[in-house]
Simulated assay, not measured.
Amino acid sequence: MEPDERLRHSSSFGAAAAAYAEHRPDYAHAAVRWALETAPGLRVLDLGAGTGKLTATLVELGVEVVAVEPDPAMLAELRRALPDVRALPGSAEAIPLPAASVDAVLAGNAMHWFDMAVAGPEIARVLAPGGVLAGLWNVLDDGVDWVAGLARAGGGEAVGPRDTPAAWRAETAGMHLPRSGAPRFGTPEQEQFPHGQRRTADSLAETLATRAGMLVMPAGERAARLGRIRAYLAGRPETADGEFTLPMLTAVLRVRRL
């Protein structure tokens, strides 16, 4: 994605902050524990924290967390939902924290938006020696037949390039982390953990509507795409009537600061 296009997508969420807060999933606790297991302590920065989905999971796990988010509307939702969390305006490229002040930097469905040429040294600056940088992504489990069909019905804008396990592994293998030639970080590791979200057909369509590709789409095209998704869900016995669990995985990309 070209820089201007990436900026257009990454800045699209604020207009849908309330919907994002309502419909996006949290993160599997096992995945967050794995992300943190080699960290030297429990001072954690949630970077690009959005409305606080990952922040809330970190709070539930009892770590000391500070959240940083660049979009004012997303930050307002985070502060409303988690008033006791220290939440600051800032970005991956300009983190408003002192050097070596955190033991881990986590990013939930956000690391792919970072300009890592700038953000990599900045993340290294705020991490204590031996600290951990980890990106987490909730991906659809397309090993389930109806979920694979949803990916086809939704298309690339609703179900994007990191939204299935195989695609996530390929997409993150050589991207989204500080370059391997940089001396500050070690060898990256990938892992994934079962997760799920209770949804109805309508709420799943609303969830997919909060994806960046959908948010930047012209209104008529977006309505047509969501109409195809709703028609698909209405035609599947797994999703046509009442609540169901959307099968997902929380996928984690982890690297240690040297």
Rank of each mutant, 00 (worst) to 15 (best):
G90R: 00
S91I: 08
L45M: 09
F244K: 01
D142E: 08
A182M: 15
F193A: 08
A100W: 12
T210K: 05
R169Y: 11
A119Q: 08
P121Y: 06
V85M: 10
A158C: 03
E64V: 10
V139W: 02
T164Y: 03
L45N: 02
A117N: 12
D26K: 12
D145Q: 13
A167L: 12
A35I: 09
A148H: 07
G196Y: 08
F13N: 04
L204V: 05
A134H: 00
F193L: 11
A16S: 04
E69Y: 00
L7Q: 15
G227P: 03
V102G: 04
S11H: 15
L88G: 04
D241K: 09
H176K: 13
A240S: 14
P3N: 15
T210M: 08
G131C: 05
D84P: 11
V126N: 02
L54E: 14
T164E: 04
D26M: 14
R199V: 09
A117C: 10
D202C: 03
G160E: 05
A201S: 06
D141R: 06
P218W: 09
E2G: 15
H195F: 13
L42T: 10
D103K: 11
T210L: 07
D4G: 11
R199Q: 15
G131E: 06
A224C: 04
M248Y: 08
